[in-house]
Computed example of a mutant assay.
Amino acid sequence: MDFQTYFELNQLYARYARALDAADWEAWPEFFIDHCVYKLQPRENHERGFPLATLAFDSKGMLKDRVYGIRETLFHDPYYQRHVVGVPLAHKVDADGRIHCEANYAVLRTRLSKESTVFNVGRTLDEVVPTPEGLKFASRLVVYDSEMIPNSLIYPI
């Protein structure tokens, strides 16, 4: 992978985290291609090869539907989240430019008038593809370490 592509990959991860931290939910699906996969799965299920995931979406349309749910139908105590994302590790680049990569992450959550807490930690296993608009996720598997998720998982990771 050349330096420019690696720089763009780092920018993709940074812009993604920034959009989520800013609660820019409408921007979230735009980080993905139309026929994408986005899953959140506990580490135990992933390591055992079990398919059960906490959330599973298989198109940009489904991601947009989740945004609608966040904005219009889900009621919860508001909170802020802050993503701390490690430097992406590229494992392989296919001949068509598809990048197989991963990064560690931690999400901190702050409820109004309360202290910040660690909400979720793990790693993402990603496939990133070049598009005319720049690099985008074709697949994002979020493997979180803990089997316990406080309350319900509202916002994307």
Score class of each variant (00 low, 15 high):
A19Q: 10
A17H: 07
V142D: 11
S152M: 09
V128W: 05
S59D: 10
M148C: 08
H76C: 09
I70M: 05
L12H: 07
T110E: 14
A17C: 15
V84N: 11
L20F: 11
A56C: 13
L112P: 01
Y80E: 09
A138S: 13
S152C: 02
S113L: 11
G49W: 13
G69T: 02
N120E: 09
I70K: 02
I154H: 04
R18K: 14
L135R: 08
V87N: 04
R15M: 00
L74A: 06
Y144L: 13
S113T: 10
F119K: 06
A53T: 11
G61Q: 13
T124D: 15
Y105G: 08
D58T: 14
L63M: 11
G86K: 11
Y79Q: 07
K64I: 06
L153W: 02
R66K: 15
I70D: 02
Q81K: 10
G122R: 07
A106C: 12
K64E: 14
A90Y: 01
L125M: 11
E30D: 11
H91N: 02
K92T: 00
E147F: 11
P156K: 15
R140N: 09
F57H: 13
P42A: 10
D65L: 15
F137P: 13
A27F: 02
F119N: 07
E47L: 15
P156H: 15
R123Y: 02
F3L: 12
I149G: 04
Q81D: 14
I157H: 09
E47N: 13
V85K: 02
E47G: 06
P78E: 06
L63W: 10
T117P: 02
E26I: 02
E115Q: 04
G69A: 10
P88H: 00
